[in-house]
């Protein structure tokens, strides 16, 4: 019994054709302290968005190593912001030039987890959150989002918590390059957990990369990144 983490990220056709680096980033880590999956999408209009996203994932890891799992949501976000700004400061990059979304799943070895999200993208869970932690409401559009470096209010974040109790229980974090092109997501999370159950990390990454590269949506352009956490 335990928890496994898998992830993949591919550069979108728009960035491949123009030679722009992948502006999504993903980090998965697991240790005796627990586990973390961090997914971030750098805002394409900002000049250092790719670094913003990568730095955010590293700052997320810094934060969970500093904090107690039972800390408040505010402490979690404030610590993350401080660590992100500190890392950007070393690189002499202004936060406004590195705006990035943030999707986090932080868990303990006993598979209790906490979720946090700022901006676009989707966190889905089986059995929960089945409808997504924070999907775009009907009043918005595909090219409007929030992100760290742009939003500094706790109210802009969404949080949740739970536990992966049974084999097959899972969480999926994805950037809007995937989420915006999905139709119904019914069965998606449990399908991924089932498909990945017998794959090693390298095999899982290769399979996911193939899937995200061979994407069926017409004229799709965006970078695509996914992280999956599942109970075995």
């Amino acid at each position: 019994m335990g928890v496994r983490l898998r992830a993949a990220s591919v550069r979108g056709p728009a960035h491949t054709e123009t030679g722009v680096p992948n502006q999504d980033a993903v980090l998965i880590r697991q240790g005796r302290w627990g586990w973390l999956a961090a997914v971030s999408d750098g805002m394409g209009s900002r000049p250092r968005a790719d670094i913003g996203a990568r730095t955010l994932c590293k700052a997320a890891l810094d934060s969970v190593r500093e904090l107690h799992f039972d800390c408040t949501d505010r402490a979690w976000v404030e610590t993350l912001e401080c660590n992100w700004l500190a890392r950007l400061g070393v690189l002499r990059i202004a936060a406004k030039d590195a705006v990035a979304t943030c999707l986090l799943a932080w868990g303990l070895p006993d598979s209790r987890f906490r979720l946090a999200q700022l901006g676009d993208g989707l966190i889905l869970g089986h059995p929960a959150p089945a409808r997504g932690l924070f999907s775009r409401d009907g009043g918005s559009f595909g090219n409007l989002t929030r992100g760290l470096g742009l939003s500094w209010r706790l109210e802009d974040w969404r949080f949740d918590s739970g536990q992966l109790l049974a084999p097959g229980d899972a969480l999926v974090l994805m950037t809007d390059g995937i989420a915006d092109d999905l139709g119904s997501t019914d069965g998606l999370v449990s399908m991924l957990a089932r498909e990945l159950r017998n794959r090693g990390a390298r095999s899982a990454r290769a399979a996911l990369t193939r899937d995200l590269t061979d994407w069926p949506t017409a004229h799709h352009s965006d970078d695509k990144t996914v992280a999956i956490i599942y109970r075995i």
Binding site: D181, L182, G183, D211, D214, A218, H219, H220
Partner: peptide, 13 residues
């Protein structure tokens, strides 16, 4: 890995 089976084919308008 059929994650793409959940994607719509229509382009974003």
């Amino acid at each position: 890995m059929p994650i793409k089976d959940f994607a719509v084919k229509a382009a974003r308008p």
